[in-house]
């Protein structure tokens, strides 16, 4: 018998997921700068930011973009501590960890800038290695920060509806919207099931029994999902569904949105053209 905490982890995973969504919705309803923009314009300009981050070869531009992201977060009344924690954990920290070997000449040969002796072994840090690793980590954290800033300043339903401006077929947009709702329902089912299991068996469980519990949970979730389909379809019919999804369009573009779109487009063009020159 080995102490196994997968039940605890699954419960805390589901709870933190639900909490995070509540926080995101709380920030999205604040009266900040990004929250006041039209979701379509905001998404378009954030995609430009993310594309600029992808295309640029300069760490200075990446750092400027990261600083701009933090300023935008401040103007949007996002708690910076929450934002840094949310953006650095987990992907950028993981990227930082995997970028460390790239510093050394074994992986990135080049001009030596520092030699470290560890128990007789010589480790050489190269200029190219340092540059590759820092560019990689800065690019990752800047991209993640913009993506997180977009989703904490926009209501999730609006963000999904925005996909229509990219000509995403309505069946996909409707599926995304419905899927989003079911995730919460399923997570609640999973959380309640695990709580019930925990209250009956505690936390000491052999891993094989644990795997059986997970498999049973997944199959039971599929069974519920399968039979839920019929009830959902009947509910859709009773609300007037006739085979083609109809989506509401209540977005309004103001002059402030056009000004924001114009300035970010200009910035994006400069970065793309500048990238070819620098």
């Amino acid at each position: 018998m080995k102490k196994n905490n997968f039940i605890e982890r699954s419960i805390s995973g589901a709870v933190s997921f639900l909490k995070e969504s509540i926080f995101a919705d709380e920030y999205a309803s604040k009266n900040g700068f990004l929250q006041s923009l039209d979701p379509r314009i905001k998404t378009l300009t954030f995609l430009m930011f993310i594309m600029a981050i992808l295309f640029t070869k300069s760490i200075a531009i990446l750092l400027c973009l990261y600083a701009a992201c933090l300023v935008l977060a401040l103007f949007s009344k996002i708690n910076i501590g929450f934002f840094l924690k949310r953006t650095w954990i987990f992907i950028p920290l993981f990227s930082l960890f995997i970028a460390i070997p790239a510093l050394f000449s074994i992986f990135t040969p080049g001009q030596t800038i520092l030699t470290i002796n560890i128990i007789g072994a010589k480790l050489i840090i190269t200029r190219q290695g340092l540059s590759s690793a820092s560019l990689f980590v800065t690019r990752v954290v800047t991209s993640v920060s913009f993506a997180v800033l977009l989703n904490v300043t926009t209501r999730h339903f609006e963000l999904l509806r925005v996909l229509r401006i990219f000509k995403v077929p309505q069946i996909f947009v409707m599926t995304l919207g419905m899927c989003y709702r079911y995730i919460y329902l399923f997570l609640e089912i999973v959380e309640n099931t695990y709580l019930a299991i925990k209250s009956r068996v505690g936390s000491r469980l052999h891993y094989k029994k644990g795997q059986e519990i997970v498999a049973w949970n997944i199959s039971s979730l599929w069974q519920r999902s399968y039979y839920l389909n019929e009830a959902v379809y009947n509910a859709m019919l009773s609300r007037g569904y006739s085979g083609e999804p109809v989506l509401l369009n209540d977005f309004k573009i103001k002059s402030k949105d056009w000004a924001w779109l114009f300035s970010i487009t200009l910035f994006f063009v400069i970065i793309i053209l500048g990238g070819k020159i620098i």
């Binding site: 997968f6 699954s10 599926t175 079911y182 995730i183 399923f186 997970v214 949970n217 979730l221 379809y233």
Partner: peptide, 22 residues
Amino acid sequence: RQVPMLAIAAAFSFVIMMFNVP
């Protein structure tokens, strides 16, 4: 009749990725 199934299956795929398997 199976139109909602796609959305339900997508949510199911999402939730499977969150299961911690010992």
